[in-house]
Computed example of a mutant assay.
Amino acid sequence: MTAAWGHGVLGGLMVCGLVFLLVFGTLVHVWYVLACGFALAAFAGLDNLSPDDPLAHWAAVALVLWAACRLQFARQLLRMRHFAPRLDKVALLLIAALAATALYAAFDTRLAWTLRTLQALVVASTVVLAVGALLAWRRMPWPVGFFCAGAVLLLAGLSVTHLPAWSELPPAIGPVNFAELGAIAELALLAAAVGARMRLVLHTEKALEARTKELMGAMGTDALTGATSRAGFESRGEEWVRDGRPFSLMLVDLNGFKRVNERHGRTGGDAVLAAIALRLRQQVRADDMVARLGDDEFAILLAGNPARQKLAEMAIRIETAGATPVAYEGRLLAGGELSMGIACHPADGHTLAGLLESADRALHHCKRQRMGPSYAFAGEQSGGAAHG
């Protein structure tokens, strides 16, 4: 019963490793799957074969390969090449020794020397890995913690049940094999260590993404869409106001953008935002500016003093461009249904804040209308949106 239970756990851990491998596709998960597979083959042989069985030495080979794959997996999990390069070289020498032991066990059916060598190499490699783990403790505490707990259980199991005893005694039915339990417990904790490392990587990536957005914002660029950031928009707008330059401000809002995120997720919504920003930039001149002010809100600064008819024609072109479906992962997502509020400097405000307020009132008036154009001019809400 104990053996069957242990084999089932090893099979489950192997499936877990395969899932990690399919999702992330990294080499560290390959070594984990191999370690679980060789451990399952080795302990199945230990539990069912007598030492004089012709196939017994192949169980010993599988056990040596488990130790080698486990060591290779732990090296990459703990990033020993980065945190402890000298210890990593020692670990590579131990892997070479395990490879030589596996080659010897494949041709020599005598088990005693193989198992004694294996136990010594497993203990030595565990000590080396534990020291390397302590050096990486500050950088990834949770993965190191899980690894150290598993190493303690493995060493405890090996201290109670000596592997070389298998070469002298037939398999006993009933007594617990503590070495096997220790190896299984360590593999389970290593799976937890992999999960902790993946969580750490994701957390690091999110922090890096946030830092990138912060830096891009400081440089005046929105990281997602490539449009000007709010800081860049405010800097340009304030400069034009100080210089007394005539210009127009157009606030652009995506109606119903929340539904896009609900249906297609954040990545689908990001694709729509990036496409809308690109289309807005394609409708303006080199001296104009397209900026992203918020989640689904953009602003356009139009240099000069264009006639309202020209502004209305531009708004219609923007509306048409925004309504074009967005290609995303082989599908076409509904484009943005846009609403626009337009204010002109200095007629609708003598400060950038005043212009934003005027354009925002026009935008909300436009969105409240059930009929009429998709744009509205500041100061004309009572009479409806201007047609030019």
Rank of each mutant, 00 (worst) to 15 (best):
74 A>M: 04
75 R>G: 14
87 L>I: 11
112 A>W: 11
55 L>T: 10
71 L>K: 07
70 R>V: 05
28 V>I: 14
48 N>W: 15
57 H>K: 11
43 F>C: 02
94 L>R: 04
29 H>I: 05
113 W>M: 11
113 W>I: 13
40 L>R: 04
70 R>T: 08
102 A>E: 00
65 L>F: 13
98 L>T: 11
81 R>M: 15
53 D>K: 04
62 A>G: 05
73 F>T: 02
71 L>W: 08
32 Y>P: 02
112 A>D: 12
96 A>D: 07
93 L>H: 09
54 P>A: 01
95 I>F: 07
56 A>P: 09
66 W>R: 08
93 L>Y: 08
27 L>P: 05
85 P>A: 04
95 I>L: 12
21 L>I: 06
100 A>R: 04
30 V>K: 06
78 L>S: 00
29 H>Y: 10
45 G>V: 07
72 Q>I: 14
18 L>Q: 07
20 F>R: 09
99 A>P: 01
101 T>L: 15
109 T>D: 03
66 W>S: 07
41 A>K: 12
112 A>E: 12
104 Y>P: 01
83 F>C: 06
32 Y>A: 03
102 A>S: 05
56 A>T: 11
28 V>N: 09
112 A>M: 12
28 V>H: 09
89 K>G: 15
109 T>H: 07
85 P>Y: 04
105 A>T: 03
106 A>W: 06
38 F>E: 10
72 Q>P: 10
113 W>K: 09
105 A>C: 07
77 L>G: 01
92 L>H: 10
20 F>V: 05
62 A>Y: 08
85 P>M: 05
21 L>A: 11
107 F>P: 00
63 L>A: 14
21 L>C: 08
47 D>V: 03
80 M>S: 14
101 T>I: 13
46 L>M: 07
57 H>D: 11
36 C>D: 00
111 L>N: 05
22 L>G: 12
59 A>K: 08
74 A>H: 00
54 P>N: 02
79 R>K: 14
104 Y>C: 04
57 H>S: 13
87 L>K: 05
18 L>H: 03
69 C>Q: 07
75 R>T: 15
102 A>V: 01
66 W>K: 03
45 G>M: 03
34 L>A: 09
70 R>G: 10
109 T>E: 04
67 A>W: 07
33 V>T: 02
38 F>L: 06
102 A>G: 03
96 A>K: 04
30 V>M: 07
34 L>Q: 09
52 D>Q: 08
106 A>Q: 03
111 L>R: 06
112 A>I: 08
72 Q>T: 15
111 L>G: 04
27 L>V: 13
105 A>F: 01
90 V>S: 12
79 R>E: 15
31 W>N: 02
72 Q>S: 14
19 V>P: 00
98 L>C: 10
96 A>Q: 06
41 A>G: 13
66 W>E: 10
68 A>P: 02
58 W>T: 13
43 F>G: 00
77 L>N: 00
110 R>N: 08
65 L>R: 14
54 P>L: 02
66 W>I: 01
62 A>H: 09
70 R>N: 13
30 V>R: 09
89 K>P: 06
90 V>R: 13
111 L>S: 05
40 L>S: 02
96 A>N: 04
